[in-house]
Design a protein around this nucleic acid. Structure first.
Length: 240
DNA sequence: TCTCTTGAGCTATTTACCTCA
DNA sequence: AGTGAGGTAAATAGCTCAAGA
């Protein structure tokens, strides 16, 4: 293996050398024998680094012999390599975090819009429900409410939870209000109760604040997001 | 058993040099 | 030809840790 690196002094500090200039300036000046390692040497070093980023002393000596380098040079190369690798790894981690954040942000925006749509529907339904209570049953208005809600079947963020566990209050309110329907909207409204409307709305409003507040965002461990793509790490399933 | 010293190895940072646009 | 940026080998400071007296 051809290599033009001069033997001997290259791994030593120049400050201790007899060739150190006598001027007061601290001289670490490297002489012309400072050369880059050859491609073959780099290749061998890289190969070894892939298997183990820290060399055992015995392997270091062996590798140094094989490459015609000083053990010290091999050690320094591994030190520098670890530093470069760490730097690159930081860049990769940053990219992953950025990607995960972008996915989360777009998902959050979509949920925000969905929530807004549902709140509007809820308000309309509440408005329609109030009138039959005041002026007696109006079959046509209830039906109108039903049909309106059925237009937005794709919403249903809360639907699943509520359908899974029918509350006794639903039964009671069905009789009380005479809304005998399995309609989603009526279940939602009845489940929360009209008197609870403000509570629900307040909850929904504060959901925005809490999600966007720095305190809660910072609660996410960045490490937990690393090493996983946004596609296979759907921790936001919590919201669906 | 505890303490101190010493040497090796590590990371982080800096320096000197080289290459290239 | 001059120059600045970036890469790389090596030096340095400061730290940890294990071994041995």
């Amino acid at each position: 293996m051809e290599y033009t690196y001069s033997e001997g002094a290259e791994a030593e500090t120049y400050t201790s050398s007899s060739t150190t200039p006598s001027s007061g300036m601290r001289s670490k000046k490297k002489s012309n024998n400072t050369r880059r390692f050859s491609d073959d040497q780099i290749k061998s070093l890289e190969t070894m680094f892939e298997t183990e980023s820290r060399l055992e002393p015995r392997k270091k000596l062996q590798l140094a012999r094989d490459l015609g380098l000083q053990p010290r040079q091999v050690a320094i190369w591994f030190q520098n390599k670890r530093a470069r690798w760490k730097s690159k790894q930081l860049e990769r981690d940053y990219g992953i975090l950025q990607s995960n954040y972008n996915s989360l942000a777009s998902r959050f925006e979509a949920l925000k819009k969905e929530k807004q749509t549902l709140l509007i529907q809820l308000q309309k339904l509440n408005h329609l429900m109030q009138k039959p209570l005041e002026a007696g049953q109006s079959r046509t208005q209830v039906e109108a409410a039903n049909s309106m809600d059925s237009e937005s079947e794709n919403g249903g963020t809360m639907k699943c939870e509520l359908e899974e566990k029918p509350s006794p209050s639903i039964e009671r309110s069905e009789h009380a209000h005479g809304v005998l329907s399995d309609d989603d909207a009526s279940i939602k409204v009845e489940h929360f109760g009209l008197e609870d409307e403000h509570g629900l709305l307040n909850f929904a409003e504060h959901a925005d604040d809490s999600l966007t507040s720095p305190e809660d965002w910072s609660a996410f461990e960045s490490n937990a997001l690393l090493g996983q793509t946004s596609s296979d790490y759907q921790w936001w399933d919590f919201w669906s």
